[in-house]
Simulated scan of single mutants.
Amino acid sequence: MTQTLEALSRRTATLTSIRGIVHTMKTMSAINAVPYEHAARSVESYHQTVLSGLRAFVAKTGPIAMPAAANAERILVVFGSDHGLCGNYNEVLAVTARTEASRVDGGARVLCVGARMNDALSDQGLSPEVTLLPPASADGIGRLASDLVTRLDEIGGGDVHNRIAVTLVFTRRAGKGQREPVVSPLLPLAPSLLSDPGRVGWQSRSLPDYTMRAMPLLAALLRNHIFASVFHASAEAMVTENAARLALMQQAEQAVDDRLEEVGGQFRLVRQDEITSELMDIIIGFEALKKKSSAP
């Protein structure tokens, strides 16, 4: 009986320690998600400014017909998790990436973010040619986005708009605390971005103007459009990862609380049985002494 009580006490202590760890992980996930969410909002505002610049450029120069990307090489950029404790985050995204790659004759080249994502893609029959480290903080998103843009520029031989077709594959938040994989085409640029008057027309009575040469300005605008798109995908992926981890830690905390309550009930029951047994021993001993003292 004593050993059972000791075992239950050790189990209670272990569960209490686990609950503390889970609670800490939950708190860290909630805290870490905030800077990434702020980064996603900030880059979205920046992206809108870049798109406004493109609209102003088109309003000044007229619609631009980009050359058709003949035999463009397909590139998939997959943003995964490398920290764990977020469920099947990488596995679901890897299935989406495989489905997207299967639509391309001859497959697609894959750039991967996250070592765990690399393993998930390998399980789906995809072999990333490069695996980059995910950002450890919101400050690292810019580093990752710049690295990816540079690599895409190298693959495209300095002409990414005509030689490669890039698709971003990442996870974003959905309604009611859910998440969903997203396949977002990045290159070649949508024709409406530079040539649809109804969409890119300059909505102002003030005429736009610029002083630098047209082609360097256009190249800078397009590069910043690509950078902002990659930055936003990375930030959104990190927000979703922490949200997924937070949800799982909440479930784990509830499961530990339920188990603690169950073990606590068992402990109280066993303890009550022990007290009852001790009382019975006292009563039996008292009755024995009483009979002995009353004997002639």
Rank of each mutant, 00 (worst) to 15 (best):
V43R: 15
V43L: 09
V43K: 11
S45F: 11
S45M: 14
Y46P: 00
Y46T: 13
Y46H: 15
H47K: 13
H47N: 14
T49I: 03
T49V: 09
V50D: 02
V50S: 09
L51W: 06
S52E: 12
S52L: 12
R55Y: 08
R55E: 10
R55N: 13
A56G: 15
F57V: 00
V58W: 06
V58D: 02
V58I: 05
K60E: 08
T61K: 12
T61M: 14
P63Y: 09
I64L: 15
A65W: 03
P67Q: 07
A68G: 09
A69I: 03
N71F: 08
A72V: 01
I75P: 04
I75E: 03
L76F: 05
V77H: 05
V78R: 05
V78S: 04
F79K: 04
G80L: 04
S81Q: 04
S81M: 01
H83R: 15
H83Y: 08
G84I: 00
G87R: 04
N88A: 14
N88D: 15
Y89H: 12
Y89I: 00
Y89S: 04
V92C: 07
T96C: 13
A97T: 00
A97S: 02
A97F: 00
T99A: 14
E100D: 09
E100G: 03
S102L: 11
R103W: 02
R103Q: 14
R103A: 13
V104M: 11
D105C: 08
D105S: 15
G106P: 03
A108I: 01
A108T: 04
A108C: 12
V110R: 05
C112N: 08
V113Y: 06
G114V: 00
G114R: 07
G114Q: 01
A115P: 01
R116V: 00
R116S: 01
M117I: 03
M117V: 01
M117Y: 05
M117P: 04
N118Q: 12
D119Y: 09
D119R: 15
A120D: 00
L121C: 02
L121P: 00
S122L: 11
S122V: 11
S122H: 11
S122R: 15
D123L: 12
Q124D: 03
L126P: 05
L126R: 10
P128A: 13
V130C: 12
V130I: 14
T131Q: 07
T131C: 11
L132G: 07
L132Y: 15
L133H: 14
P134N: 08
P135Q: 12
A136M: 08
A136N: 10
A136I: 01
S137W: 09
A138S: 15
A138Q: 13
D139W: 07
D139I: 09
G140Y: 08
G140P: 08
I141Y: 07
G142N: 13
G142Q: 12
L144N: 07
L144G: 12
L148G: 05
L148H: 06
L148R: 07
T150R: 13
T150M: 06
L152N: 01
D153T: 12
D153Y: 02
D153L: 02
